[in-house]
């Protein structure tokens, strides 16, 4: 009778191979992937738009503050209220991004339970399934967040031209703008990967029979 130690284990596939399998999957499911990406684009566009417009407003009021001598207490209170309102808006934007992206990732994992079960019957180990979904979420997160940031900032500037006139182009310091880009992009990628992590982990740990039985 064999002992446990003698039982062979399956080798993990090299990362490059998992990436190539994942990319093939994304390409074949391109429309499904685009829907997920567009969810991320929308969420992050909203976030970067809010941040960017807020930047305009802050810099305008800064400029106004230096011209109109030290503001009255009422004016300062009004500005403070505006800040609080903006924080709420940014918080809301992040929340909306989070919910939207979690929903997209949850769907894209759960609708593939059967496929996961089948792969496990053929010898896929847990880490393969997990890595596959994480790689996919990183790719979708990076593309979606990048497009989202661009779209959000573009919309903010187009709107800014109408609100502030052509002066809007010089309103935001470059460092500020880069800050908005970096914050929105990183938020987008992190939310996407975190959103994929939970369903992917659950899916990877399932016994094949549970995954195969899953009805959607």
């Amino acid at each position: 009778m064999k002992t446990e130690n003698e039982i062979m284990e399956i080798e993990s596939l090299p990362l490059g191979k998992i990436i190539s399998i994942t990319c093939k999957g994304i390409k074949i499911r391109i429309w499904r992937s685009l829907i997920v990406v567009s969810g991320i684009v929308l969420a992050i566009a909203f976030l970067s738009y809010i941040l960017c417009s807020d930047g305009f407003a802050q810099n305008v009021s800064k400029a106004a503050g230096s011209i109109v001598e030290q503001g009255s207490p009422e004016k300062i209170q009004e500005l403070k209220d505006q800040r609080v309102q903006t924080y709420w808006m940014v918080g809301l934007a992040i929340l909306i991004s989070f919910v939207g992206i979690v929903n997209a990732m949850l769907m894209s994992v759960t609708e593939r339970f059967r496929e996961i079960g089948t792969m496990k019957c053929l010898g896929a180990i847990d880490s393969f399934v997990l890595k596959m979904f994480l790689i996919e979420s990183v790719i979708e997160g990076v593309i979606g967040a990048l497009l989202g940031v661009l779209a959000g900032i573009l919309i903010a500037y187009v709107e800014g031209v109408f609100t502030y006139g052509s002066g809007v182009w010089s309103l935001l310091p470059l460092a500020w703008l880069l800050g908005v880009v970096a914050f929105s992009f990183v938020t987008g990628v992190i939310i996407t990967v975190v959103a994929a992590l939970y369903p992917a982990r659950e899916a990877s740990k399932m016994m094949p029979v549970v995954a195969l039985r899953a009805e959607l």
Partner: peptide, 22 residues
């Protein structure tokens, strides 16, 4: 002769991959 119930997931994957066809 090997106990399925005592295997880790990599050993189970090996059995599913190499020993059994479904």
């Amino acid at each position: 002769g090997a106990f399925l119930t005592k295997m880790n997931q990599k050993q189970l994957a090996y059995i599913r991959c190499r020993k059994i066809g479904y």
